[in-house]
C-alpha cells in the first residue's frame, strides 16, 4: 500500500484568513471528509491509477460478489443481524434485496463495502477476499448510494461534490474534470455544475450522489434504500437513471429496498427475513409467494393484487401478472376473442 499524491489545491481552505468562521468551515469540512472517506469509497491510501486488471472481459454469469456462510452481530445487540448467509451476485445483473425493517439487508450492504466485517464466513469481491488489508482495493469496485439525499452531499456545488472522491484518489486535474462532466452527463445533471445543494430536489441530489460513485468507475453499485426518501417523481428519476446506466455501463446493481414495484423490475430478488436468506428467485417466482410476502412484513405489487382479485371473481387468467400493461393486454385479448 502506498499513499497517493495529494494535489496542490487539495486543501485550498488551509489558506487561513484568520477568521473564526473559517475555522468553523474547516472543522465542518474535516468532519464531512472523514464521513465521506469512510462511507463513500475510502481510497485515501490506495494507488489511484492502477486499475485492477483481468476483470474486464469475463463472461456474464460470473459472480462478482461471492458470499459464503457469513454471520454478523452488532456489539450492543444480543441476536445476530445476519446468520449463515450465502449468496452470489452476477456480473451485469440487477439484484433487488428486499426484507422488513431489521431483516439484515442494510447490514449486508455494509459488509459488502467493508464498513463492517463478518464474524464468520467470507466475502469475495471480483475474486478478492474482503478483509482489513484488501478493503481499500475492494471499495474501488463497490460504490454505495445511501438513503438520505442530504447526508451524503459534501461539496458546496454539484461539480465539487462529484470531484470529491476523485480528489481523494489523487486523480490528475485534467482527468478529474473530464470524469466529473462525463458522470454528470450520465445522470442528466450536467446543466447543474455550479448549483448549490439546497437548490436541488431530493431526486437530483441522489443523482449527483450516483454521479459521484460513477466517477470512480466502480464495477458494482449498491443502492441502500436510495429512493425511499424521495417523492414519486424523484424516485422515478433515480430508477430511470439506474436503468440507463445498467444498459450502457456493464454495471452490476444491487438495490436494497422495500419498494416492491421497484423490485419487480429487477432481474432477480432475494428476500431477507430475520437475518437469513429466506428466498431467492426471479420477480415472477417471488411474487407467486403472495400472502407469504405480506406475512414477512412486505407487500405485493399492484398488478399481482389485481390479478388475484380478478381470478377470485371468476375471470380466467393464466398467471399473476407483474406488469399492468401485460395484464390489461391480456384482459383485452380475452374480451375481444369472445
Amino acid at each position: 500500500m502506498r499513499f497517493a499524491k495529494i494535489p496542490d489545491d487539495f486543501f485550498p481552505w488551509l489558506k487561513y484568513d484568520g477568521s473564526l468562521r473559517q475555522i468553523g468551515i474547516i472543522q465542518l469540512k474535516l468532519v464531512l471528509m472523514r464521513e465521506k472517506i469512510f462511507i463513500h469509497t475510502g481510497q485515501f491510501c490506495a494507488a489511484a491509477n492502477e486499475a485492477p486488471s483481468g476483470r474486464e472481459d469475463k463472461p456474464m454469469k460470473e459472480p462478482v460478489v461471492k458470499i459464503e456462510n457469513i454471520s454478523f452481530k452488532y456489539d450492543e445487540q444480543e441476536g445476530y443481524a445476519l446468520k449463515d448467509l450465502s449468496l452470489q451476485v452476477y456480473d451485469g445483473e440487477w439484484l433487488a434485496i428486499v426484507g422488513h425493517n431489521g431483516s439484515g439487508k442494510s447490514t449486508l450492504a455494509k459488509l459488502m463495502n467493508g464498513l463492517q466485517y463478518p464474524l464468520e464466513g467470507t466475502i469475495e469481491i471480483c475474486g478478492i477476499r474482503l478483509n482489513k488489508e484488501t478493503v481499500w482495493e475492494t471499495r474501488k469496485l463497490v460504490g454505495m448510494v445511501f438513503q438520505s439525499p442530504d447526508n451524503q452531499f459534501v461539496g458546496t456545488t454539484v461539480q465539487d461534490d462529484v470531484a470529491f472522491g476523485l480528489e481523494n484518489n489523487g486523480v490528475p486535474r485534467g482527468e478529474m474534470v473530464k470524469r466529473v462532466i462525463a458522470s454528470l452527463e450520465k445522470v442528466h445533471m450536467e446543466k447543474f455544475l455550479d448549483q448549490e445543494p439546497h437548490h436541488l430536489s431530493g431526486g437530483q441530489k441522489q443523482r449527483v450522489a450516483i454521479a459521484g460513485v460513477l466517477a470512480l468507475q466502480p464495477k458494482i453499485i449498491i443502492l441502500d434504500e436510495a429512493t425511499s426518501m424521495l417523492d414519486p417523481r424523484g424516485r422515478e428519476e433515480v430508477l430511470e437513471t439506474i436503468r440507463e446506466l445498467k444498459g450502457t455501463n456493464q454495471l452490476t446493481v444491487i438495490s436494497i429496498t422495500h419498494d416492491l414495484e421497484e423490485a419487480a423490475k429487477a432481474d432477480r430478488i432475494i428476500v431477507m427475513n430475520r437475518g437469513r436468506l429466506y428466498k431467492e428467485g426471479t420477480p415472477e417466482e417471488i411474487f407467486q409467494m403472495d400472502e407469504e410476502l405480506v406475512e414477512l412484513g412486505l407487500d405485493i405489487p399492484f398488478s399481482v393484487k389485481i390479478s388475484k382479485k380478478l381470478r377470485e371473481k371468476g375471470i380466467p387468467l393464466d398467471k399473476f401478472y407483474l406488469s399492468e400493461e401485460e395484464l390489461v393486454a391480456q384482459l383485452w385479448t380475452s374480451h375481444s376473442s369472445k
Binding site: N101, H258, L260, G297
Partner: peptide, 8 residues
C-alpha cells in the same frame, strides 16, 4: 411513514 417497511 417515510422509511418504514410496508407492514410498518
Amino acid at each position: 411513514t417515510a422509511g418504514l417497511d410496508p407492514r410498518g
